[in-house]
Write a protein that binds this DNA or RNA. Structure first.
Lengths: 243, 243
DNA sequence: AAGTGGTCTAGACCACGAG
DNA sequence: TCGTGGTCTAGACCACTTT
């Protein structure tokens, strides 16, 4: 194989594909060294920087690993390793060809319960915004979301806002600092009476429990809560290793 | 801020950190454009290639996005998006400071059940290897694994192999083609009698159900099965956005 | 000393978007 | 036409590993 410089596919990508194919075909076996960057550069008529770009791509995909002073080696495939991506709710639902909607079940200012106060790093009893929402896919509840949010400003809450706005926009209006990142923990759980009712399934049904902390740019927590996803209608698929 | 060319931290990384800090501090807001590559190059005394490397890093982390002919823009944070990584069993367990071990419960050649035959793309009834294993962390069962594997060669199965070898090595010995990648689906479930007994918990307990297909380099399926992870002892934590 | 990957540069040409 | 990001080059110096 050679590089076609007239192709629309850029040379760095062509080389990455060539090497990927050779690795998958077993031409280079796990642990074996690839030709050095200088050799690849010479063989394919590309500058070393371009060769390195191809190799970086394969390294990011986990197919190879580089060792300074030694060489570039084919990685052993990690068969039991998987990467799962949970997209934003409306994206996830749209990808399945369904329409998403949000039903606000409750939204009020409450004194922060001890646990919520700890998570939000406010004194216990501080007024925080508590919301309960039902996330619908194709008209059917898919997830049940409960959250505590810091409420620093003196702005009144508008029912309309909560009903129709996405959570990030809502928080933006009602908290001092914007959340800019989130930390999540995913667990498997079974639903209790209340949760099952909200999701329209039988108590004891399986569900994903997603605990979420919203963080401001300075690292301070802005929100905390859980979102339950119906186990019979939600699953995560591993991201394929793609270059 | 300026670049310290005498630092051990390479310039491309220093610039990435500077820009990240400015974005997180709100100096550049979501949707806003960053200075052009030429401007950054001029301002920080770096070549354009180096500036581009910094920007690629921020783009991979999801903080910015580039648009050809238009500029580089700060992304809106996707708060409800999360990435979960499931590491190989022994790594995952070792990371918690526990020792991992594997107990082989069953391993025999069986005529492939219809579903397994379909998944493995072999005629129904073909002899395949069926194994059941208990994956232990600190002596306690953490996962319960059941798999069907193609068995093309005429080699006898050695109990010792199954007991002590990792699955990839085992498959390597007993299948024509090496598995080189896997496709997984993660679900939430509740355990039945048999599964609960294997995991030493009560029936009806929550668990993660990980369905796994092992693929050879040419894309042919080599193995198929499920692995159940105890819901009370296993959880996934989102990968932080890191540059 | 020689070979490897890691970083950086100054310049070039291209494709695309806006005026 | 001009400014933007996307790609590529030929060379350089460095840090590390092996001989």
């Amino acid at each position: 194989m050679a590089i076609d410089k007239n192709s629309f596919v850029p040379p760095y990508y062509q080389l990455a594909q060539i090497l990927e194919r050779q690795i998958r075909a077993g031409d280079y076996r796990p642990g074996e060294a690839l030709p050095s960057e200088a050799e690849l550069s010479e063989k394919y008529g590309l500058s070393r920087m371009t060769v390195r770009r191809s190799l970086s791509q394969l390294a990011r995909a986990g197919l190879i690993r580089t060792e300074r002073g030694k060489g570039t080696f084919v990685s052993r495939p990690e068969l039991d390793r998987a990467v799962f991506v949970m997209e934003e709710f409306h994206k996830e639902v749209a990808a399945r060809g369904l329409t998403s909607s949000v039903r606000l079940l409750e939204a009020r200012l409450v004194p922060a319960p001890e646990k919520a106060a700890g998570k939000l790093q406010v004194p216990a009893g501080t007024k925080v915004l508590y919301i309960r929402r039902s996330l619908l896919a194709g008209g059917e509840p898919l997830a049940y979301d409960r959250k505590y949010l810091r409420y620093d400003r003196g702005r009144p809450i508008l029912e309309n806002e909560l009903q129709y706005q996405a959570l990030p926009e809502m928080v933006e209006k009602h908290a001092e600092a914007l959340p800019i990142s989130s930390k999540m923990v995913l667990q498997a759980t079974v639903l209790n009476e209340e949760e099952a009712r909200a999701l329209r399934v039988a108590p004891g049904s399986p569900a994903f429990l997603l605990e979420q902390v919203l963080l401001a740019g300075d690292g301070r927590p802005v929100g905390w809560g859980w979102c339950l996803y119906r186990g019979d209608r939600y699953q995560l698929t591993s991201v394929p290793t793609v270059i």
